[in-house]
Design a protein around this nucleic acid. Structure first.
Lengths: 270, 270
DNA sequence: CCCCGCCGTTGACATCTGTCAACGGAATAT
DNA sequence: ATATTCCGTTGACAGATGTCAACGGCGGGG
């Protein structure tokens, strides 16, 4: 237990302070109306004047370096983030300073709405060079009071976050290492597909070490499972790049197919 | 793997159909204004006419038997539930028919708001004789569009649900059996205290078997851990009744105290 | 450009946890 | 009231996973 936190070298903080060197940072002055993710992001359902008013409170995308903390665990949250490219992780830190990755979020997804309750201890950190919009929570709440469509989408996204978390919970509570990884890869693949990417070929949104943490495995174990699945011809990987070779096979492994339900014990407890 | 689902004998369904024998069921015609949980429930922050309007859409508490399904996994969700006494579990079922308990909810808590997104596959089931209010989701959404305070509370409760889930996730992903139980008991104790109950003496909201499932443990393992903690003098239990004897000791075990941070390895992965 | 440090991999080993099995008591249905 | 089913407990054992250790490549910083 030498390292206390995830311990990355340059621990910068980009979100809580005003943009440094504003002007030199690319601002990508694109509007919501032009955004590829418009239909899945917060302004889904907005149009005309409402869309414009929403756009006015959004801080449009800036490029953030990797390993940058967007929100420190415990600090008062100010923003939600819409990811346009790249990926971020959410994590919580215990009193001993060790952290637990609680989720990974990719392009097309919105993070931080759970802070509306004002009770979060989560931290956010970019996992790679990431393009994201910042949405001030206070303004968002104020605006949503006037726009039912916006409010509806906020609830929708929050719900999705819960569902996503529950699904993930099922994975780590009831599956063994091999299945956890297969499950996670299929999950990432599906989300990637939904957001316009490839289902079978993508880059892992996080490094192996953090993926292991997220899945509740030792990183050595995860590494072994990767080798194992590769050996079985289910996937190939090179660094962060992953190519799913046999999606059906992976699904069968996770237990999507009822056919193998009794072949191996899977559920635990009652 | 003989039992396919949690498999309880009387699998009734009380929520999706109109109240059977309405009139013979006790209705507890109490209003939100009189409710002990008013400040933590949905109508927190409402008063006067708004409170009355909210109360008008709520189906005030009825007594539901234990092991009754309030919402079937996969079915279209219609209600949120406010628990006034008793407890319910949320669970998801995989294609093989095995289910994973994803959460336990006790008096003073509201469940089902995550269905607002319309994407849930969760099921709800009472764990004991339970007194609960049903809130029709459609009406709730409509009303919240007119009442910022209500909307705010909805977001707040949804956020709490996410936070709760994340905390639980930390437990099952990063802790060993012994700690998982200690953590869970402390969590229940804290929630019990918050809702006006005792911190050290309470009844488990769910049976051992389901608790094991929730914690991602075999029920035999959970049983052993219970014996172990009891043997260490940390707690006593008799059936569902639990008495925490040494809360500090439990906290230390979970790792709340920084003092023991380096005594035992705890975090896994990066 | 080079060096250092981090990340991922692999092996060996300890141990925790799941699985199988049997038992007794409690709760439920008949 | 009685019979049956279910639940929780305990033991024995095997297997999966965490831990410790060493190595090499890649990347970042100087």
């Amino acid at each position: 237990m030498s390292r206390k936190s995830t311990g990355h070298r340059g621990h910068r903080d980009a979100a809580t302070s005003a943009p440094r060197k504003s002007g030199t940072q690319p601002t990508f002055g694109s509007e919501c109306a032009d955004c590829a993710f418009r239909q899945v992001c917060l302004p889904a359902g907005l149009a005309g004047a409402n869309l414009e008013r929403f756009g006015a409170i959004v801080q449009h995308p800036r490029l953030i370096q990797k390993r940058v903390s967007l929100q420190t665990p415990g600090a008062a949250p100010e923003y939600a983030f819409a990811i346009r490219a790249g990926s971020i992780k959410t994590h919580i830190t215990n009193e001993a300073g060790e952290d637990q990755v609680t989720g990974v979020w990719m392009a097309g997804e919105v993070v931080g709405l759970e802070n509306l309750g004002g009770t979060t201890q989560s931290g956010y950190q970019t996992e790679r060079h990431t393009l994201l919009c910042r949405i001030p929570l206070r303004r968002l709440v104020a605006l949503s009071a006037e726009m039912p469509a916006l409010q509806h989408q906020m609830l929708r996204l929050l719900s999705q976050e819960i569902v996503q978390t529950e699904i993930h919970q099922r994975a780590i509570a009831g599956m063994r290492a091999e299945k956890r990884l297969a499950f996670m890869l299929l999950d990432i693949a599906a989300r990637n597909l939904r957001n316009g990417g490839s289902e079978s070929h993508f880059e892992l949104p996080i490094r192996h070490g953090e993926l292991a943490n997220l899945l509740g495995l030792a990183h050595e174990t995860l590494s072994r499972v990767f080798s194992q699945l590769t050996g079985q011809g289910l996937l190939e990987c090179e660094g962060r790049e992953v190519r799913l070779r046999d999606i059906t096979g992976l699904e069968r492994m996770v237990g999507v197919s009822p056919r193998d339900a009794h072949e191996q014990p899977r559920a635990r407890g009652a």
